[in-house]
C-alpha cells in the first residue's frame, strides 16, 4: 500500500518573504504616482539587473554553465528590436517577445557548439560568441554599422501619445518582465526540472547516475536564459532609444556587473541576485564618480567575497539562520500525518 503525499514548498520565513514581496510590488507598481522621471529610470535599471543576474545565476549557479558571454544575448535582443521596428515595422513593445523568440532559436546552434567545450574553456567560448555577434552587428550598415543608430521618432511615438505615458509604459513593462522572469525561475525550480537542476548543482556526477538527463536539462536552461536575457536587452535599449555594437555587447555592463551582483548576493540561491543588485546600486550611487577606481574596487570586492564568503551575502544568511524569501523548499506531507513539521 502506498501512502499518499503532498509536496510542500513554503516555510514560515518564505511566507513572510512572499508577503513582503507582494507589498513591495504594489508600492513599485504605483511608482509613476510618487516617483520622478529619474526615479523611474533608475528603478527600471534595477529591475533589468535583478532579472539579468537571476538568469545568470540560473545558468551558472544551478546548471553549472558559467558563461562570460551573456552580453551576446543582451545585444542580440536589442538589435532584433531595433531591426524589427526600423526595418519591418513591428510595434516596439511587440518586438520585445520577438527578440526573445529569435534569441531562443539562435541559442540552439550556439549551444551545439559551446557544449563541446568544458568548464573554463566553455566560459571563454561564450565570450568569443559574443565577440562574433558584436563584430557582425558592426557590419550591418542598415543599423548604423560600427557607430550605431537611434530609434527614429516615428517609432518612439508609436508606443504612446505622450512622452510621460511612454515612460510609464516602459517602466511597467520593465517591472512586469522582472516579475515574470523571477516567477518563471521559481516555477522552474519547483518543477521536476528544478529538482534535476538542484541535483546537478550539488553533484553533477551523482545526478547523472541517478538518471538525470544532464545535457538536455542544461540545454533547456541555456535556451530559456537566452530568451529571457534577450527580452531584457531589448527593453533596456528601447528605453535608451539608441544602440551601438559596443554598448549593446559591452562585457562590463552586461557580464562583469552581473557577475559581481550574483557573486556578492549569493550564487545558487534565487534570493542572491536580488540582494546583490541592491548592494551594487548602493555602491554605484555612492562611488561611481571614482571612475576606474570604482570598477577596480568592484573587482576587489568580488574576489574577496569569492575567497572569504563564497556563498555570498544571502548564502551566509540562509546558512546561518535558515531564511528563505521565496517558497522553494521541498517537504513531504503525508495524508496520515496530522502534525505540521
Amino acid at each position: 500500500m502506498t501512502a499518499s503525499f503532498k509536496v510542500e514548498h513554503a516555510t514560515r520565513s518564505s511566507r513572510i518573504g512572499m508577503a513582503a514581496f507582494a507589498m513591495a510590488l504594489l508600492l513599485l507598481a504605483a511608482a509613476p504616482a510618487w516617483g520622478g522621471r529619474d526615479d523611474l529610470r533608475l528603478l527600471a535599471e534595477i529591475y533589468a539587473y535583478v532579472a539579468l543576474a537571476s538568469l545568470w545565476n540560473l545558468l551558472a549557479g544551478y546548471a553549472g554553465l558559467v558563461s562570460v558571454g551573456q552580453q551576446a544575448y543582451v545585444g542580440l535582443g536589442a538589435y532584433v528590436l531595433f531591426a524589427s521596428t526600423i526595418l519591418a515595422g513591428v510595434h516596439p513593445l511587440l518586438a520585445v517577445p520577438v527578440a526573445g523568440a529569435v534569441a531562443a532559436i539562435v541559442a540552439l546552434p550556439v549551444a551545439g557548439l559551446m557544449f563541446r567545450l568544458r568548464g573554463h574553456y566553455f566560459a571563454i567560448g561564450t565570450w568569443v560568441v559574443a565577440e562574433v555577434f558584436r563584430l557582425s552587428a558592426s557590419q550591418i550598415s542598415a543599423l548604423g554599422g560600427g557607430s550605431g543608430i537611434s530609434l527614429p521618432a516615428s517609432i518612439v511615438t508609436a508606443m504612446a501619445p505622450s512622452r510621460q505615458l511612454r515612460e510609464f509604459l516602459i517602466y511597467w513593462v520593465a517591472l512586469a518582465l522582472m516579475v515574470a522572469v523571477l516567477a518563471a525561475i521559481v516555477l522552474l525550480l519547483r518543477s521536476r526540472y528544478g529538482l534535476a537542476l538542484t541535483a546537478i548543482r550539488d553533484n553533477e556526477l551523482a545526478a547523472r547516475s541517478s538518471g538525470v538527463d544532464v545535457t538536455r536539462t542544461k540545454l533547456v536552461v541555456y535556451i530559456l536564459t537566452a530568451l529571457g536575457t534577450a527580452m531584457i536587452g531589448a527593453l533596456i535599449f528601447l528605453q535608451k532609444l539608441r544602440i551601438s555594437p559596443d554598448t549593446a555587447f559591452s562585457v562590463n555592463d552586461w557580464t562583469a556587473f552581473v557577475i559581481f551582483i550574483t557573486v556578492v548576493g549569493g550564487i545558487g540561491r534565487v534570493e542572491g541576485p536580488i540582494i546583490g543588485t541592491i548592494v551594487f546600486f548602493l555602491l554605484r550611487q555612492t562611488l561611481a564618480d571614482l571612475g576606474s577606481l570604482y570598477l577596480l574596487m568592484l573587482g576587489a570586492v568580488a574576489i574577496a567575497v569569492m575567497l572569504l564568503a563564497p556563498k555570498g551575502i544571502w548564502g551566509f544568511l540562509a546558512g546561518r539562520f535558515g531564511w528563505q524569501l521565496l517558497p522553494l523548499e521541498r517537504r513531504l506531507r503525508f495524508a496520515a500525518d496530522a502534525r505540521t513539521t
Binding site: 558559467v66 562583469a256 557577475i259 557573486v263 573587482g299
Partner: peptide, 11 residues
C-alpha cells in the same frame, strides 16, 4: 570551477 574563474575575472 567557479572560484578560479571568477577570481581571475575579477583580477
Amino acid at each position: 570551477l567557479l572560484p578560479p574563474l571568477l577570481v581571475t575575472f575579477g583580477l
